[in-house]
Amino acid sequence: MKFGVVVFPGSNCDHDCYHVLKHVLGQETDFVWHKEREISKYDCIVVPGGFSYGDYLRTGAIARFSPVMESVQKHAEKGKLVIGICNGFQILTESGLLPGALLRNRSLKFICRNVNIRVENTDSPFTRKINKSAVLKIPIAHGEGNYYADEATLADLKKNDQILVRYCDEKGLTGDTANPNGSLESIAGICNKKRNVFGLMPHPERASERELGSVDGIGIFKSILEMN
């Protein structure tokens, strides 16, 4: 598969994603500068984490108008894959590719630590090779990860099984104490209705090698590749 990792001014997880895809999983992977419009050769676009445009105005608000995002929109409309991680998730909600928004963390603090997430649904290109209800230990690093959607949107997400991962404790139980940022219904990641666009706050690329303390994140990338 061919992967394109988008690079905005202020992206800082682009190299981590590139490293995992290219060197850990051996996939053809390119960096794609945000001014690029030609992305038709890629099967999957990765919108990585970071602080695109310094998080000015709102996280992801300005990146969403980068030339490349117009092409990403079309890429998604064709049914090709898009995964947005952390700031990438914020950019995807700002651009309307995913519903809802990411608000300031409930604690107002930037939180950088390992959390547990439970896989809620495996009927997606991003979770198909992971067991349902599996608990993954993956780090988060964000100040604005508090997922919000209005009631109608939330009902829609549930009805269509779009909630792919939720924050939980080590045993897989959700609840207020296991919810690091105050996200609505402990939502950590969602996909669109067509299930080809996925956004999540945790960083699977930082949990894809034993040396980093967890390999729980690699299942997401292996799902994209349909590898076990």
Partner: peptide, 8 residues
């Protein structure tokens, strides 16, 4: 389009 996110 930009200055406000009308979702929130």
């Amino acid at each position: 389009k930009l200055l406000a996110n009308t979702v929130i």
